[in-house]
Design a protein around this nucleic acid. Structure first.
Lengths: 207, 207
DNA sequence: CGACCTTTCGACTAATAACGTTGAATCGTC
DNA sequence: GACGATTCAACGTTATTAGTCGAAAGGTCG
């Protein structure tokens, strides 16, 4: 099997090509032949590394999520106040969401109804997200920055409210066009939301 | 047949939707169903207005070319010096080329070999382009700005050299990736080319 | 209303495109 | 030169999609 590194290298190569295509055209508009040709391989060779197209897609998403978690774990290390950590996290998270949005090529229904086979990817990811936000909020509680009863419940609320807003946004973009402008609008709303939530969490005495 | 205006309106609607899709994904990656659904129609209804997908594509291109010619005819009216007109024209023309590039979705071969059925669209367009450039150069000659023997030959040279550079650019982008940077590079080269050509055309005494 | 024209669509076909398979060839390494 | 790792051309099978057809809905005018 040569060195695991080499196989690893090739898989990375495949995933890179696939990610580029998927980000541009979405899952259904990308063919295995295109991915293969992008890296100078025959289509059949792809199947040596990945059993199905769906698997490649899953691997691409998983890698993006991993990178995200890795990056954002860095945020937790810094000695910033918890509120800054939370805002930084949310910003990163929104960016990831926007990228993933393209992977279905503007077809918001894709993620929920159309492909239940991909749902599991997001549940494990969500758990890890929950952990990170909970950590941030707990930290804020411990150093008397936040005044919360249950960090877990608070983290859950933040996550749900964030995802809910994204859903609203998807509905809106699907109805009308104009994605660019609405993405900025969406980001502003998220900023505002976080500020408002923080208002309700921070300890009065700390202001 | 209702008012011709209404049919016209609907055709415009179809073309708008088609243009958006084609510009984003290219000819082959767009389905009739998608175009139809974008405007809330059944696919079969599209065929009431256009006999084939290729015809829609042709109409989209033709309309873009028409708009371009209309816009640029405006340039000719202004009392600017011919050299400025020429540069303005070239800039507009390059922009059009970049847009049309997407219609094949980065597949440069599409325009030449793959679809000879589209070639006629470009020959009539080229004739009109020739006319416009010839007009500009002739004007420059008449008011003693340019020193050229034959405006026609000069216009032809400019056009061919421009198209040749575009071809080179296509080859380059197909070999490597990195489109964004290379487009800017291309535009700089075109600017430089035009400046150089103008150097060889303008009357010395006018400098 | 009812004849007539315009416009829309659901359901179908035929052809193509794309996923995924297989068995053989090639390469690298021991 | 044997053996596993890797690659591919050619193929089978399913899914997608351009284009068709007949019927239905909508509208207009006498």
């Amino acid at each position: 099997m040569a060195l695991p590194n080499l196989a690893h290298e090739k898989e990375k190569h495949i995933l890179d090509a696939a990610e580029n295509r998927f980000a541009r055209f979405g899952f259904s508009k990308v063919t295995m032949d295109e991915i293969a040709q992008d890296i100078g391989l025959a289509k059949a060779s792809l199947y040596y590394y990945y059993p199905t197209k769906e698997n490649i897609f899953r691997a691409v998403i998983a890698r993006k999520q991993d990178k995200f978690l890795q990056n954002t774990k860095g945020i937790l290390q810094h000695p910033d106040p918890a509120r800054e950590k939370l805002k930084a996290y949310v910003r990163q998270r929104i960016a990831l969401g926007n990228q993933l949005l393209n992977f279905s090529a503007l077809n918001s229904t894709f993620w929920q109804e159309s492909k239940p086979g991909f749902k599991d990817l997001f549940v494990t990811f969500s758990r890890q997200e929950m952990d990170m936000i909970t950590t941030i909020v707990s930290e804020g509680k411990q150093n008397n920055e936040f005044e919360v009863a249950s960090p877990e419940k608070t983290a859950e609320l933040i996550l749900h409210v964030l995802l809910g807003l994204r859903l609203r946004f998807l509905q809106a973009t699907q109805a009308h066009g104009e994605t660019r402008e609405q993405i900025e609008n969406f980001e502003q709303q998220v900023d505002f939301l976080i500020d408002t939530l923080l208002q309700g969490i921070v300890k009065r005495s700390s202001l």
